[in-house]
């Protein structure tokens, strides 16, 4: 026959005991609670507890929950309220800022998506001023990648044909024809300067400032439990290594490799995995050329 006591005094006592026992191993915590619960039930069944005063006296004799848990604690038990000891301190990382700049410059080759992600990251950083964020947004509208995409789409194709020259001469004659429109040379030079060189200069300056501001911040203690393996730097490395090779050959895998080896969160073996992936990424243009060569010969 079950007749469990559900007196608020008892419930409150057991709740306090349960909270105090949070640091014990789950089976011992359960064991302790059921033992005390059993004691109270047995006391009531024995007829010892008749009213509130006798119930209070029973709980008083049991003792304070903290006292009971202290008796249960053994060497090796965790104290739940104490923070885990910091293993070491490191200088504040600027993974977010590095990833933001990489996405604004190289990432912009991923058409609008990469650049937009970069902009979101720039605005979520607290290491840049409002003016710097505005500059980053306005100097890179679409990023240098957009220029390349536009040049492909709008300028069109330049077709070269090689025709064998008349006569015994073995010299070949090359004729190139451009379709679409082409910009006047001086204007093109300015455009390249604005769209490609200026963003790179701004990128460098912004990274430098972010680093300097991060250095003036207090060092970050690294706890074993909260040590994340995924900072901005790591995410950038994966993006560059994973898809970068298909979009910008050579440059993106090398940048990804740089990010991976810069990471303070990844182990040496994980970095070597990244290196293996990067080497595959580097192979993409080689494979592409081989494919084209094969297609030509057949």
């Amino acid at each position: 026959m079950e007749h469990r006591v559900s007196d608020p005094l008892v419930e409150d006592y057991l709740r306090r005991l349960d909270a105090a026992a949070a640091g014990l191993a789950p089976d011992r915590r359960e064991d302790l609670l059921s033992g005390i619960r059993e004691h109270i039930d047995a006391a009531i069944a024995s007829g010892e507890v008749t009213d509130e005063a006798s119930l209070r006296a029973l709980l008083d004799r049991l003792g304070e929950p903290e006292e009971i848990v202290a008796a249960a604690a053994e060497p090796g038990d965790a104290t739940p309220w104490a923070p885990p000891p910091a293993i070491y301190c490191r200088r504040p990382g600027i993974g977010l800022e590095i990833a933001a700049i990489l996405l604004l410059t190289l990432g912009s080759l991923l058409f609008v998506v990469g650049w937009l992600a970069g902009i979101v990251m720039v605005w979520s950083s607290r290491r840049w001023t409002l003016v710097e964020k505005l500059v980053a947004t306005l100097v890179f509208p679409g990023g240098p990648g957009l220029v390349l995409w536009l040049s492909v789409v709008a300028v069109g194709q330049t077709m070269c044909t090689t025709t064998a020259a008349d006569g015994p001469s073995t010299d070949a004659l090359e004729t190139c024809t451009s379709t679409g429109f082409s910009l006047p040379a001086p204007f093109g030079a300015v455009a390249v300067l604005v769209w490609v060189v200026l963003p790179l200069v701004v990128a460098g300056v912004m990274l430098h400032r972010a680093r300097r501001r991060a250095d003036s911040e207090p060092p970050v203690p690294v706890y074993p439990a909260t040590r994340s393996r995924w900072g901005g730097l790591e995410i950038a490395a994966v993006l560059l290594l994973g898809v970068g090779g298909f979009i910008v050959s050579v440059v993106a895998p090398v940048a990804g490799l740089f990010c991976a080896w810069m990471s303070s969160q990844w182990t040496r073996s994980e970095k070597w995995v990244a290196t293996a992936i990067a080497s595959m990424g580097l192979m993409i243009p080689v494979l592409g050329l081989a494919f084209v060569a094969l297609a030509r010969t057949s």
Partner: peptide, 13 residues
Amino acid sequence: VTSEGTIYPLLSR
């Protein structure tokens, strides 16, 4: 015994 409750952790040990 000062606090009766402390017997239970002891029994479990």
